[in-house]
């Protein structure tokens, strides 16, 4: 099981190295452990996250690709679909059958067909278009829905903070 996973992860890594998608960098944290990756995601343009670079951790299960990996922003990001602890909640990261509310279609959820690249692309698209219907961070949801300028202001402040500029422009 673990061997399959390792093989596949290696393949995916090769694929990512060979043909890296724009704005995304990903790779194992440590050569010895293929199951924990570090990722850097660029904030998509025309979104409050523009200009930011967000660090995230991908933790693969031993039975990958049968089960989806877990993606966590370190440090967390203010976003309706990101839990306060940084965990990302998007449909592609949900195993089929996990969603009791049937919000998500089966083809939107995890399947071995998906890959790290697709996950990260989904994250980028999530950053530009939050899905408030199935929110993870309720406060962020409310803020995003009811007071967009304040939401954007807070996000921009966080972006600056993450880049090491402090609260100069708050």
């Amino acid at each position: 099981m673990s061997k399959t996973a390792q093989r596949r992860l290696l393949k995916e890594l090769q694929q990512l190295m060979r043909d890296p998608p724009p704005g995304i960098v990903a790779g194992p944290q440590d050569e010895s452990d293929l199951f924990l990756w570090d990722c850097l995601v660029q904030g998509p343009p025309d979104s409050p996250y523009e200009g930011g670079v967000f660090e995230a951790q991908l933790r693969f299960p031993r039975d990958y690709p049968l089960s989806p990996p877990k993606l966590t922003f370190v440090p967390s990001v203010l976003h309706p679909n990101v839990y306060p602890n940084g965990e990302v909640c998007i449909s592609i990261l949900h195993a089929p059958g996990e969603d009791p509310n049937q919000y998500e279609l089966a083809e939107e959820r995890w399947s071995p067909v998906q890959s790290v690249e697709k996950i990260l692309l989904s994250v980028v698209s999530m950053l530009s278009e939050p899905n408030v219907e199935s929110g993870a961070n309720i406060d962020a949801c409310v803020l995003w829905r009811d007071n967009r300028p304040e939401f954007e202001r807070q996000v921009k402040r966080n972006v600056l903070k993450s880049l090491g500029f402090g609260e100069s422009e708050a």
Binding site: R8, Q15, V113
Partner: peptide
């Protein structure tokens, strides 16, 4: 052509 699951 590769397997969509294991990429082999």
């Amino acid at each position: 052509a590769t397997c969509r699951i294991c990429r082999g």
